[in-house]
Design a protein around this nucleic acid. Structure first.
Length: 478
RNA sequence: GGCGAGAUAGCAAAAUGGUUAUGCAGCGGAUUGCAAAUCCGCCUAUCCCAGUUCGAUUCUGGGUCUCGCCUCCA
């Protein structure tokens, strides 16, 4: 039985889908005005892992991850660039897909863009107005009246009194209460037509929070199973989503709220404002994308994750051990035996990876994943299995290793291409390495070990490690 | 100021009321021409102070420190 930590109740609960064998999940995605950084990578990878595990567990999953393509920062950036909103957002959507693809992130079932769901947002705002929860402010904005919604603060554990007492909440113009938030922003004369939509409240554009409520409802229904996002979205974004959706529909919005921890740099949250961020593409110039994915999944999704080159190097070494175990063994065609973890059939969307779930390592792996997606523990199982593969040289064990790792989106490449990948511009190419190995083999045959060692040392200094085996000399890049 | 999360060995990171986490690094052995890889063995831990308990790293209380949210933020 899968247990998930629910931010709403602050404990782990059995996952009970609203509809049998179905899981409906919504995750807050990116605001596309710049390249994704490692913090975004974590959300992408973590919820991809959740998506994969739900599917591997037999659920028919509908995964929605939105794209915010209209917002203040986007408008500002487009103006700075002298670029249209559409051109800017499309550029960064494409970049995001590239980055996500590199990290082995599967495409969600839906990737709704805010600009394509404005009618649904208007409908929801109208309903909120009808329910007495929205009001038109003097400046033309339509705001949400937070104090009219019972239970505001239930997700973040904040009370309106506490929030009001906070000195950082400023009174914005036009709001009845400093905590009220914008549902519909009135159009400014200075703004381009591209950012103006007609509405019963005049021309304008949607506030940020309403898009997720409207798109979640449109694609998953008024009540769905899982809603995820970064821990920083808990308040106010997710709190406001609850106020909007439950205020409009008068029924529970989401059963399980999941929040992933931050990526940190020197014990500090990686963020745009602090300027301590690394973009995904920046990191991928230096590290293999699978190493980055491995690094992210090696920590529990709710824990902080400190980023540093040393930690990436460490992750690379660990992943190398896994691939090394598979190197000499060509896994046979996977055999499907036993029952999948949940009765309903897996749709085979795992990319042809078949796991024998009755096998002891798989049982441990499943137990770990079922315990609030404990990927560090699941990885420990992978390493234990690796030891068995190395010890027994069992092709069956190797196949199981590859299959289990595949559930996490790892270890699916040809081992050789992982181990020998990463040739830098300055490094030796494969042909040069092979030529050196040939030369060294000759010196070895002549028992000129001094020369053989010299060649090996030279290659090592160029970042290539040689391994002499009875079958010949293998090599890998460090 | 309000609310919340956390402090595990050299580093990273899980789990657990008593019994090996795991990876990297280190040490010894096997193997190797020597290495590398692999295998076997070993070494470093549970922030501090009380309490509950036969027994706590794990539960409770207090303290110290760190981080996050309260403003856009994954």
């Amino acid at each position: 039985m899968l247990k998930i930590y629910n931010t709403l109740t602050r404990d782990k609960q059995d996952f009970k889908p609203i509809e049998a064998n179905k899981a409906r999940m919504y995750v807050c995605g990116m605001t596309v005005y710049d390249y994704c950084h490692l913090g975004h990578a974590r959300v992408l990878v973590v919820f991809d892992m959740v998506y994969r595990w739900l599917k591997a567990s037999g659920y028919d999953v509908t995964y929605v991850r939105n794209i915010t393509d209209i917002d203040d920062k986007i408008i500002r950036r487009a103006a700075e660039n002298g670029e249209s909103i559409h051109a800017l957002t499309q550029r960064f959507i494409d970049a995001m897909h590239e980055d996500a693809g590199a990290l082995g992130v599967q495409r969600p079932d839906h990737e709704p863009r805010a600009t394509q769901f404005v009618p649904q947002m208007l409908e929801m705002i109208a309903q909120l107005e009808k329910n007495g929860l929205a009001y038109r402010a003097a400046d033309g904005d339509v705001n949400y009246a937070v104090r009219k919604f019972d239970g505001y603060g239930k997700l973040s554990g904040k009370s309106l009194e506490d929030l009001r007492a906070g000195e950082r909440v400023e009174v914005a113009d036009g709001k009845n209460d400093p905590l009220d938030f914008v549902l519909w922003k009135h159009a400014r004369d200075s703004e381009a037509d591209e950012v103006k939509w007609d509405s019963p409240w005049g021309k304008g554009r949607p506030g940020w929070h309403i898009e997720c409520s409207a798109m979640g409802t449109e694609l998953l229904g008024r009540h769905f199973d899982i809603h995820g996002g970064g821990a920083d979205l808990q308040f106010p974004h997710h709190e406001n989503e609850i106020a909007q959706s439950e205020g409009a529909h008068r029924c529970q919005y989401v059963n399980v709220w999941m929040h992933n921890g931050f990526v940190r740099v020197d014990e500090e949250k990686m963020s745009k404002s602090l300027g301590n961020f690394f973009t995904i593409r920046e990191v991928l110039k230096k590290y293999d994308a699978e190493v980055v994915r491995f690094f992210i999944l090696r920590a529990h999704y709710r824990s902080p994750l400190n980023y540093s080159d040393a930690h990436l190097d460490d992750a690379k070494g660990a992943l190398t051990r896994l691939y090394t175990a598979l190197k000499s063994l060509t896994p046979p065609t996977p055999i499907v035996r036993g029952e999948p973890p949940v009765s309903s059939p897996d749709k085979g969307r795992q990319g042809g990876v078949a796991v024998d779930w009755n096998e002891p390592y798989a049982k441990r792996f499943k137990a770990a994943m079922d315990d609030d997606f404990n990927t560090p523990e699941a990885m420990a199982v992978l390493f234990d299995l690796t030891n068995e593969v190395n010890r027994t040289q069992s092709a069956e064990a190797a196949a199981q290793l590859k299959a289990l790792a595949g559930v996490l989106g790892l270890l699916q490449r040809d081992p050789q291409s992982f181990l020998q990948g990463g040739a830098g511009e300055s490094g030796l190419d494969d042909a040069a390495i092979n030529a050196q190995i040939e030369a060294r083999l000759a010196t070895k045959k002549a028992r000129n070990f001094a020369e053989a060692d010299r060649i090996r040392k030279e290659l090592l200094e160029a970042g290539v490690v040689l391994e002499d085996t009875p079958q010949g000399t293998a090599w890998r890049r460090v």
